[in-house]
């Protein structure tokens, strides 16, 4: 439930859905996100520049020349966004992943820490229906959840300076996919050859907040011969 709306500076607002990080909370955020996106596309409200969902908040940025925060706050308070049905807006994506040891940099450490076998870790990961909580930090990078409790693990003490594009990492109950080569502290368990981001495509990001991701195992050979559309 929407708990509170606050100003962020003079051209932003934060819609806060509470402190809990759960699919239930995030689904409420995504409903408001979808509602704002539709309202912008159908020109029901003017001046909105960006709307960014995260685990438990939706941040809206607007053009102060066109609209003031009070108008947007009233527009949201008067709306019925919680009645939106998410399945009509969101999709399920099959995500190829290769767990070969060349790419699963942290799997040995995870085996030790979680006392689970490699096979068990992979099976848990493959059998999870991941929900896309949010996309961001850098273009197209998804934050997925929820991993089973027995796989929950902290971030690396010392982040890696360089993580290859396509690396799949886990931290706590979340899973992410690096869409650009970057530094990072997530436990890397595999690699996807699928391109998650292409600015030249109509839908630049393969995934959207609220989508579902199911991983599918590839051999190293299949990974190397994989062709993106």
């Amino acid at each position: 439930m929407l708990k509170k709306i606050s100003n962020i500076g003079d051209c932003g607002i934060a819609c806060d859905f509470g402190d809990e990080v759960s699919k239930k909370t995030n689904k409420e955020v995504i409903k408001l996100f979808n509602f704002i996106q539709d309202s912008v596309n159908n020109k029901k409200i003017k001046g909105i520049l960006n709307y960014t969902p995260s685990y438990n908040k939706l941040i809206i940025n607007f053009d102060l020349e066109e609209v003031r925060s009070q108008e947007i706050i009233e527009f949201i308070k008067d709306s019925d966004f919680s009645k939106i049905i998410l399945s009509e807006k969101n999709k399920t994506v099959e995500m190829p992943i290769c767990y070969d040891e060349e790419f699963a940099l942290d799997i040995k450490r995870l085996e030790e820490k979680t006392k689970l076998s490699f096979k068990k870790i992979v099976n848990e990961h493959l059998n999870t229906d991941f929900f896309v909580y949010m996309i961001g930090f850098v273009p197209g990078q998804p934050f997925l959840g929820d991993l089973n409790k027995n796989l929950n693990h902290d971030r690396l003490d010392t982040p890696r300076v360089k993580i290859d594009k396509g690396s799949v990492g886990i931290v706590e109950k979340f899973c992410t996919i690096y869409t650009f080569e970057s530094p990072g502290g997530w436990n890397i368990i595999g690699r996807t050859p699928l391109n998650l981001f292409n600015i030249d495509k109509k839908n630049s990001s393969l995934l959207s907040p609220g989508d579902t991701v199911k991983f599918k195992s590839l051999t190293k050979k299949e990974l190397l011969s994989f062709k993106n559309e």
Binding site: F33, Q37, V40, L49, N50, Y51, T52, P53, N61, M134, I135, G136, F137, V138, P139, G140, Q141, T179, F197, I199, S204, S205, S208, P209
Partner: peptide, 13 residues
């Protein structure tokens, strides 16, 4: 002036 409407996909203005 910036690229708007894409921050939910990780693209800053």
């Amino acid at each position: 002036l910036g690229r708007f409407g894409l921050q939910h996909l990780g693209i800053v203005a």
